[in-house]
């Protein structure tokens, strides 16, 4: 288990654990209800986190495997 893999727990914390706290319509952020804004931010962060994991994961180094 590589330490960088632990980053993958963050989307679960944000999108599951965070929901009871983010469950509100106001304040609107960028025109979105707060809960929707929260989810969108976390979906984007999920991509970023997976990119970080991908670039630090030695399994993806070297030439294209066959």
């Amino acid at each position: 288990m590589r330490p960088v893999y632990w980053l993958a727990a963050l989307p679960f914390l944000g999108l599951l654990g965070g929901i009871p706290f983010a469950n509100r319509v106001t304040p609107f952020v960028l025109g979105l209800p707060f809960i929707l804004f929260w989810i969108v931010v976390w979906v984007i962060l999920t991509s970023v986190i997976m990119w970080v994991i991908y670039s630090l994961d030695p399994a993806n180094r070297g030439g294209e495997p066959r």
């Binding site: 993958a8 679960f12 929707l36 989810i39 969108v40 976390w42 979906v43 986190i49 997976m50």
Partner: peptide, 20 residues
Amino acid sequence: GGPAFYILCYGALAYVMSYW
């Protein structure tokens, strides 16, 4: 309304798992 947002979440988490 709001409950529909679940559709946006489960895919993202499934993709995280898909990496492994």
